Amino acid sequence: MSQLKEAGFEYYQLKNKLQYQGMDEDLEKLTKAFDHLPSDEYAPHLNRYRRYARALIMPRTHEVKWLPETKIEGKDYYEYFQGSFNPEYMGEYRRFPALTKESMNNRLLEEIIRFDFKETFWMREDALMPFHAGIHFVKLLVENEDDTAVSSPNNLHQDGEPFTFAHLIRRNNIKGAMNAISIPEHRGKMPEDVADSEITTSFYLEEPLESYSVYDPLVTHYVGEVEKGNEAGTGERSAILIDFQPTVIADPDQIRSMHGDTSKMIYV
């Protein structure tokens, strides 16, 4: 049994697991994509930058198919929703600028998505349909000594998706960004407010493609604030976050399109 299945989290070094000719070049291209991330419009004061995309993973073949973007005023976006799982955006849809086509076509990104998905496990009825993957490019950037960059939500939390994987792309000239894993009962707390015996583990991601995963029902997880390091220039922590959830045939009572309010419905 995998550690992810037994304990709800697992650590990986994907450089040792994904090997193919041209991988270093693909990693360099992914790294450069973080140079041009737009500011998170929902928290511009928190020094957070991001892009996002949604894809489907086909059962058995593990083929990755990118879902169409939403176009608003000539720009491409994807919608994101966490229901009640992010207290900072409770019940709120957010829209993030789409990943570039170059990033979507990057072989290494597809290999990472496929590797992650093969680590997941599902009830048989959940595996009848394609699976949804949400792919986040997130950069925490600090330019001045007094700057702080913050992830969302800034506490021990669950994401609302069954599985989330985090892959470090670049860590440079920063302090902080400690990762912590705890139990579900401590959702909403800060790690320093939890007894040491109930912090399952804490660690730092430092090398490119150093990664970890969580199975949401069994754990809470956290990444700490980022501050500038001692060297000249900016500080940065860039990571790819990938979450998975099933696209099952839902209970009709849970389908909002069955509620009868046609004024809010659209043609697709």
Rank of each mutant, 00 (worst) to 15 (best):
A55V: 04
Y42S: 10
Y77L: 01
Y80L: 11
L56S: 15
Y52S: 10
R48K: 03
E69L: 11
Y52A: 14
F34M: 01
F34A: 04
T70W: 10
A43R: 09
M58E: 15
V64Q: 05
I57F: 12
D35F: 05
E79G: 08
Y49D: 02
H62L: 12
Q82S: 08
Y52N: 10
E69P: 13
R48Y: 03
E73F: 06
P59A: 04
D40Y: 00
E79R: 11
L30Y: 08
Y42T: 08
F81H: 02
P68V: 03
I72M: 09
F81Y: 10
T61N: 06
Y80T: 05
S84M: 02
L37E: 03
S39A: 12
S39R: 10
S39T: 09
F34C: 04
L46P: 07
W66C: 08
Y52Q: 07
F81T: 01
E41N: 10
D40V: 00
H45L: 12
E28G: 13
R54V: 15
M58H: 15
K32G: 01
I72Q: 08
S84K: 02
K32Q: 10
T61L: 02
E63M: 11
P44Q: 03
K65P: 07
A53S: 12
G74P: 12
I72C: 09
E63V: 11
E28V: 10
L67T: 13
Y80D: 09
L67N: 14
L37M: 04
Q82M: 08
G74L: 01
R50P: 07
R50T: 02
S84E: 05
Y80Q: 14
R50K: 05
K32C: 07
H62T: 04
L30G: 00
E73H: 10
L30H: 00
D35G: 05
R50M: 06
R54M: 15
R51I: 04
P44T: 03
A43H: 06
G83A: 04
L56G: 11
R51N: 08
Y80V: 12
E69G: 08
R54N: 15
T61Y: 00
T31W: 09
R60Q: 11
E28P: 01
Q82I: 01
D76M: 10
K32Y: 09
Y42E: 12
A33M: 11
Y77D: 04
M58W: 15
A43Y: 04
I72V: 14
S84L: 03
I72D: 07
K65V: 12
Y49R: 07
E69D: 13
T61Q: 02
A43V: 08
H62R: 13
E73Y: 08
K65E: 07
D40A: 00
